[in-house]
Design a protein around this nucleic acid. Sequence first.
RNA 1: GGAGAGGUACCGAAGUGGCCAUAACGGGCCCGACUCGAAAUCGGGUUGGUGGCCAAAAGCCGCCACGUGGGUUCGAAUCCCACCCUCUCCGCCA
Length: 424
Amino acid sequence: MLDIKLIRHDTESLRKKLERLHCETPLDLILERDARRRDLLVKVEELKSERNRVSKEISREADSSHREMRIAEMRDVGDAIAQYDMEIRALDASLNDAMLRMPNVPHESAPDGLSEADNVVIRNTGVQRSFDFEPKPHWELAERLGIIDFERGVKISGTRFYILKGQGARLQRALIAFMLDQHVKCHGYTEIYPPYMVRSECMIGTGQLPKFGDNLYRDAEDDFMLIPTAEVPVTNMHAGEIFDKEQLPLRYVAYSACFRREKMSAGRDVRGIKRGHQFDKVEMVTFVDPAESYDELESLLRDAESICADLGLPYRVLNICTADLSFTAAKKYDIEVWAPGCNEWLEVSSCSNFEAFQARRTQIRFRPEPKAKPQFVHTLNGSGLGLPRTLIAVLENGQEADGSVTLPDALVPYMGGLKRLEPH
RNA sequence: GGAGAGGUACCGAAGUGGCCAUAACGGGCCCGACUCGAAAUCGGGUUGGUGGCCAAAAGCCGCCACGUGGGUUCGAAUCCCACCCUCUCCGCCA
């Protein structure tokens, strides 16, 4: 959510910045509703002030005919207030809805662009292995290794589900443990195990709702939704809180399963485990002083990259252009690893600075000085990393001609000393 | 699932229709006095949001918030309805 005062007073410079997104925004609707709302507010508050004053007088009024007269007067004032209040409430609801649908303002360092083709590759690291045989996609490797059961996954849950089995299940568990350990021990994050189901207000807080409800699974009876990322519970866990400056930055890392309908990408990426309705992810979430949030974004990105590097995976980093920025982000980097079997770059991480966008929705604040007015923190998050795609990269990059897979050294301790997966 | 109790400021807590939200009282914390310094004592301070004057800051004048949302009333922390949450006991359960 944007600052309504900024919208009011810096309208034209805001409009210019939003044009870079190349999408429709409810800016004019907001301006109109806000002006009307304040107009009514002035009137109703005047009436309320009068009612408060006279009501106090009534309580001290001894003469009963005077008393009755004044009560009758106030009855009319009360009716007028009720009328205004009703109108204001309706206006509030539509203004609030429009505010919640307003995208974040892109940071100046996010490159201009019209589509994802305009994302800027800022780093390309690691050596892409040259194969003296045709590298296979992970679904073929996994089949021969007997570590993923696609058919039975579909049998029990339908399309976009699979079962990890034996060393496949273990490999995923090893990756999760490795990532969590790195972020906790080497990068100083605090580990969180969050609920996977949250109330819808949390989805509003982090920006999944109201715009992207299509992508969420929800409980039919209760106000519960399945999280599409650990960002949702971990960010919302501090909703409504006011921190002291010394408590910041707060850095968390959470492993969770994630659930997404993937309606937008129906029919895409149906082969293999690249895109499922349920997947695992290790997510970093931080809360910082606004003055430090762009330094924090760089360090968050480094922490995510270090996992790719430790696993020996070739990867590149993209600075996401304005047209491809997500609704909530002011700036975003994607990390993509190379998958030689699928022959494509796979997005394994998005690292974003949301600035005050989520903090304003969730009311997460801090005091810059002990007695100062609270102001909004900046929130950031980044995957570190998404599991299925990391698993794909480990399998496809480590494959040998005989169908075996050499595991990265970093994972060997987590695999009980196992260095290689062998086909049956 | 059943029965009961409760949700007020940083914490505890009083308040059953106006004299209680500028929130009693106690504690914590901050500032000051006393002191060589400290303790004790004494004095003062200590919620957030929002509107107008006004583009912003300071200031002044209002409005809103007693778990949340509605309602009754001239007037609601207080009465009514719905919901959320916490605790105790019972039942069931991995």
